[in-house]
Design a protein around this nucleic acid. Sequence first.
DNA 1: GTGGTCTAGACCACG
DNA 2: GTGGTCTAGACCACC
Lengths: 123, 123, 123, 123
Amino acid sequence: MILIDYNDKRPIYEQVVERFQTLIINGALEPNEKIPSVRSLAIQLSINPNTIQRAYMELEREGFIYSIKGRGNFVRMDDQLMEKQKEKCLGELKQRIQMCQDLGIEKERVLSKVFDVYGEGES
Amino acid sequence: MILIDYNDKRPIYEQVVERFQTLIINGALEPNEKIPSVRSLAIQLSINPNTIQRAYMELEREGFIYSIKGRGNFVRMDDQLMEKQKEKCLGELKQRIQMCQDLGIEKERVLSKVFDVYGEGES
Amino acid sequence: MILIDYNDKRPIYEQVVERFQTLIINGALEPNEKIPSVRSLAIQLSINPNTIQRAYMELEREGFIYSIKGRGNFVRMDDQLMEKQKEKCLGELKQRIQMCQDLGIEKERVLSKVFDVYGEGES
Amino acid sequence: MILIDYNDKRPIYEQVVERFQTLIINGALEPNEKIPSVRSLAIQLSINPNTIQRAYMELEREGFIYSIKGRGNFVRMDDQLMEKQKEKCLGELKQRIQMCQDLGIEKERVLSKVFDVYGEGES
DNA sequence: GTGGTCTAGACCACG
DNA sequence: GTGGTCTAGACCACC
């Protein structure tokens, strides 16, 4: 379910955070579903429990999960959070488009990338 | 000419590198133009000369400048390098568009961001 | 009668304690009225009986209930306890007002909050 | 400058966070002033550097300080953050006033607490 | 030297 | 068993 890429320059806890974010956003993990305990996931990935703990802390802070002492960590995903994530992603997208323009890249080349992903059709 | 943003989480040398890249790409710095010496820039920004040294090393590695011992560092910018930069930027753009799609963002909202930057017209 | 909010960061037993305190203070539970047994409440809330046990222990320690072996737990509420509760709450209120002052918040803004809750009138 | 109360039930890192918040809000620490390094403060308080690290992380997340790798941590305090803190404090104040009302405390007793702190005068 | 990350192992409160 | 906190000690990137 969770994989760590040791060639990735980013810290492990950040990789774990991102992986869970994806799983939750995709719906692979459903609301109120229990996710692995700090210790069990640490053993499974053979990394230190503190690292998982930190990842879970981050996920809770961002509103992706909630934790209950003595019980475990559970998925929290509501529409409000979803929309917030979309806004964030679109903001970063715009920033990158700006960089393309600064580089003198033509509008057509940018649009073609959109079509590469979304297809040429009506949506 | 060069500004450092201490609120920026990236290392200083990286900010210096990016700033020079922009100046060179924009044409603010012309090919074969001399850029400030390591020492003088370090004093001007009141940061460690090692940091500037590292930034210049990086810029040289990426082909943005060349250095002549005892003379200084000079801008190198050719079309080939330019195209390489564009490709890199477009690659990162595509990756982000993919993230938008994963989040379930509609094609229209992505396209609107492109138009925000480039305008609605024919280019 | 009792609800548990799993988004609340406080331990469950503390939530149970507070809920009963409110019900007793409000008069929803009358003096000498019997409250649910440890087991039945545990089943009803589908939580561990130990948790309820601890909550009842706490409530007894604070003088809100008394227990008779083999009979059950019963509400105890007298004016003395009531006044003690009020003093405690006012003490914490004063502490918070102090924090407001430390932050440089104007007297008017603090007073307006009082009026928000109690109304502008004579009481 | 910083003191730890081992009788306090709250975690150490939280005490450190709160102490710095107070010092920054009071103006005892001025904007852009350097605060002690993670290691030096850890030695001074004879606690683990990780604990200080966590406190500083929290402070940065809340916007009270900014950190530069290889340089240190510095105070950041702007009016926007200040106002945000005030709002937060007033929100918690209102919540407590509500609790007073629920307990049946008279409006006069609440107001008298405000006057205890702010004085009876015009402000 | 300074911040950032990680490991190994421990203790506590909670359920 | 589960999350939360802390210690002791280590390595890395950055300045």
